[in-house]
Deep mutational scan, measured.
Amino acid sequence: TLDDSATICRVCQKPGDLVMCNQCEFCFHLDCHLPALQDVPGEEWSCSLCHV
């Protein structure tokens, strides 16, 4: 889900339109996540760090 609060991106440390991982609660810009996300993920989304 998009989170436009004062939360910062885990990768670039900047605020903005972010998606939050449902497991670790880290936030990412779509372009900062590795691999980059093309679209906003669904409600139950886990980042690539949680899939390691």
Rank of each mutant, 00 (worst) to 15 (best):
A36G: 10
V52H: 04
L37Y: 07
S5F: 08
A6E: 15
A6F: 04
C32S: 03
L2Y: 13
L2G: 02
N22M: 06
N22Q: 10
R10L: 02
C9I: 00
S48F: 04
S48G: 11
R10M: 10
L34E: 15
C32V: 00
D31S: 06
D17T: 11
S46H: 10
C32Y: 04
K14L: 03
M20Y: 07
V19K: 02
W45L: 09
C21G: 01
E25W: 06
W45S: 12
D4F: 09
H33A: 12
V52E: 11
E25D: 07
R10N: 14
C47F: 01
P15F: 01
C24N: 00
P15A: 13
S48I: 01
C9H: 00
L18V: 06
C47R: 03
H33F: 04
C50Y: 00
L30M: 07
M20D: 02
L49P: 14
P35Q: 02
I8Q: 14
L49I: 12
A36N: 05
E44K: 09
C21M: 00
L34Q: 13
D31Q: 13
P35F: 02
S5G: 06
Q38F: 05
L37V: 11
V19W: 13
C50E: 08
E25A: 08
E44F: 04
M20P: 14
V19A: 02
C50F: 06
T7N: 09
C32K: 01
C32P: 04
Q38Y: 04
S5H: 15
F28G: 02
C47E: 07
A36E: 13
P35R: 03
D31P: 09
C21E: 04
L34A: 15
V11Q: 10
C32W: 00
P15R: 06
Q23C: 12
T7K: 12
V11A: 10
D17Y: 03
M20K: 05
T1H: 02
S5N: 04
E25K: 08
R10K: 15
F26D: 12
C21N: 02
V40T: 07
T7R: 14
N22P: 05
V40R: 15
G16C: 00
Q23S: 11
C21P: 02
C50T: 05
S48P: 15
D4H: 12
D4S: 13
N22Y: 05
T1K: 14
V11T: 10
S46K: 15
H51E: 14
P41A: 05
I8C: 14
T1G: 02
P35I: 07
T1R: 03
L34F: 13
C24K: 01
L37M: 11
Q23E: 08
L18C: 06
F26N: 10
V11F: 05
Q13D: 15
V40M: 08
E43K: 09
V40C: 05
A6M: 12
F26R: 12
G16L: 04
I8H: 10
D3H: 09
T7L: 04
L18K: 02
L18R: 01
Q13W: 12
L18N: 02
F26E: 13
C21K: 00
A6T: 04
E25R: 10
W45R: 10
A6Q: 07
F28I: 12
Q38D: 07
H33M: 09
E44V: 08
P41H: 03
T1N: 15
Q13C: 14
W45Y: 09
C50N: 03
M20L: 05
G42K: 14
Q23D: 08
E43Y: 03
R10I: 01
Q13V: 03
V19P: 00
L37N: 06
D39T: 11
S48L: 04
S48D: 08
S48E: 12
C9T: 00
A36H: 09
E25H: 02
T1S: 11
C32I: 00
V52G: 06
C24W: 00
V11L: 13
F28N: 01
P35S: 10
C47A: 04
L49D: 15
Q13H: 14
L49V: 11
D3R: 07
P15C: 02
E44Q: 12
T1D: 15
G16T: 01
P35K: 09
P35M: 07
E43I: 11
P41Y: 02
G42N: 15
L2H: 02
E43A: 13
E44H: 12
V52R: 15
Q13P: 01
F26C: 12
E44Y: 10
V40F: 13
V52C: 07
A6H: 06
Q13F: 13
D31M: 05
D17I: 04
D17P: 02
H51W: 05
V19L: 09
H33V: 13
H29N: 03
E25C: 12
L49H: 15
L49R: 15
C21H: 04
C32Q: 01
H29K: 01
C21T: 00
N22R: 11
C21W: 00
D4P: 10
G16D: 14
D39Y: 09
D17Q: 09
P41R: 07
L34Y: 14
E44G: 12
V11P: 01
S5W: 06
L30A: 10
W45Q: 11
V19E: 03
F26W: 05
L2S: 13
L18S: 01
V52M: 07
C9A: 01
D31K: 03
N22D: 08
D4K: 15
T7F: 05
P41Q: 09
D17N: 08
C50R: 08
C47K: 04
D17C: 10
G42V: 11
G42L: 11
Q38V: 10
S46M: 14
C9K: 01
E25Q: 11
S5D: 07
L30K: 06
G16E: 06
C47H: 02
L49G: 15
V19I: 13
Q13G: 12
G16W: 01
W45A: 13
V11H: 02
L34C: 15
V11E: 11
L30F: 02
P41W: 07
V19S: 02
I8T: 13
C21A: 00
A36Y: 03
L2M: 13
L37T: 13
C32T: 00
L2E: 13
D4T: 14
R10E: 04
H51K: 04
V19C: 03
P35W: 01
D39E: 15
Q23I: 05
P41L: 05
F26P: 00
T7A: 10
W45M: 07
V19H: 14
D39I: 10
S5C: 10
C9N: 04
L18F: 02
V52K: 05
M20C: 08
C21S: 00
E44I: 05
L30C: 10
D4N: 14
H33L: 10
L30N: 07
T1F: 15
Q13T: 11
C32R: 02
I8V: 11
F28E: 06
D31I: 03
C12G: 06
C50H: 13
V11M: 14
I8W: 05
W45P: 10
Q13N: 14
D4E: 10
Q38G: 09
L37I: 09
N22I: 06
H29R: 01
C50D: 09
S46E: 14
M20N: 06
H29P: 00
T7Q: 10
Q38P: 04
